[in-house]
């Protein structure tokens, strides 16, 4: 006996009415996912804000820019609960004696600085030549240009490293491969990619640390070809391998271990470069002496640990000095584990 399709229960996916209603290829079943997707573009990680910033940077009167920056920094500070709490947590470790009010003021200053760097980047993308660049540690930067092998530039999430990279790549006259984390939102990533592609010179290539793109293999081969790779050595985002190092007597911090493994495998020297805001539309590139791996056969675990400790010490000094420009919006510190009895 053949079952009458019209008599199938409506809940069955084979019911003819059900098939009429559910035609995902032609008509989306409910407007909810679309509206949710639209609303997600307005979220903090969405592409609405960078697009608005890019447009506004073109037309905003110059005397309103600091005012709008202050207003929106405060607004985002109030709206972004997780980032605010992470900032307060990090600042508590950096300044344990501060009162809560002072810590909030410091955290707001970090957001203000971040807003300034984003706005400056938007201006540069609009072809406004408005940034003064200072270089400190020119000798070390010249050393980098003389290194015949590949080199790993270690940097931190400070200042405008996106904008600084093409500058010193052109100065070094060597191709620079910049590694960065993708944006968390799909549309934001697509937008950021087009913006950065438009901005970057021939000397600078951006690689995104996306899952499954075998970036470590690609970077190792680039270093073997004597090219320069720039990596952020202070943030653990997504599934980046981390190492725990002491920051103070009471706290440890987590730093990515990838740059050191990469340097060790290729024996490329590690060159620390920090980009910091030194004033209104003024940035400073500070180069430090490079770290060279010991010659000959070496104990890999010890060599790796030594390099990580060297970087941790240098980064902690820089973070303590330029705390207001350390744009790490995730909890970076954990209390030091008690030694086993």
């Amino acid at each position: 006996m053949v079952a009458n399709p019209a008599r199938r229960p409506l809940r069955s996916p084979h019911h003819p009415f059900r098939q009429l209603i559910h035609r995902p290829a032609l008509v989306p079943p409910f407007p909810a996912p679309t509206s949710r997707k639209f609303l997600s573009r307005l979220s903090i990680y969405g592409d609405f804000w960078p697009r608005l910033l890019s447009l506004a940077a073109r037309v905003t009167p110059w005397f309103l820019e600091p005012l709008l920056l202050a207003l929106y920094s405060t607004l985002f500070y109030l709206a972004c609960g997780p980032a605010r709490r992470a900032l307060l947590h990090n600042l508590q470790v950096l300044f344990p004696t501060d009162s809560l009010l002072i810590r909030h003021a410091r955290a707001l200053r970090v957001i203000w600085n971040f807003a300034c760097t984003l706005t400056d980047a938007a201006h540069i993308r609009a072809n406004h030549d408005i940034i003064d660049w200072e270089i400190a540690g020119l000798d070390h930067l010249n050393t980098l240009s003389q290194i015949p092998t590949g080199a790993v530039i270690l940097t931190a999430h400070m200042g405008n490293y996106d904008l600084a990279a093409p500058l010193f790549a052109a100065r070094l006259q060597r191709k620079l491969h910049l590694v960065r984390a993708p944006e968390r939102h799909q549309e934001s990533q697509a937008y950021a990619r087009t913006q950065r592609d438009h901005m970057n010179a021939d000397w600078c290539v951006i690689h995104y640390n996306e899952p499954g793109n075998m970036l470590a293999v690609k970077l190792t081969s680039l270093l073997k070809e004597n090219q320069i790779v720039a990596i952020q050595g202070d943030r653990i985002l997504f599934d980046v391998a981390a190492t725990t190092l002491p920051f103070s007597t009471s706290h440890d911090w987590h730093l990515p271990s990838g740059p050191f493994v990469l340097g060790l495998v290729s024996r490329a020297p590690l060159v620390p470069l920090f980009i910091t805001r030194s004033g209104w539309r003024r940035y400073r590139v500070t180069a430090h002496p490079p770290y060279h791996w010991p010659e000959g056969r070496l104990d890999k675990a010890t060599a790796l640990r030594d390099a990580e400790r060297w970087w941790s010490h240098l980064l902690s000094q820089t973070v303590r000095q330029h705390w207001h420009q350390w744009f790490v919006f995730e909890p970076a510190f954990t209390p030091t584990a008690a030694p086993p009895p």
């Binding site: 005397f63 030549d129 408005i130 003064d132 200072e134 270089i135 020119l138 004033g279 209104w280």
Partner: peptide, 17 residues
């Protein structure tokens, strides 16, 4: 600093703020 790359469009900070 050791070197300065001045922008083509430069304006005083104090005046702006």
């Amino acid at each position: 600093t050791d070197l300065l790359f001045p922008a083509s469009e430069r304006h005083p900070t104090t005046e702006t703020l």
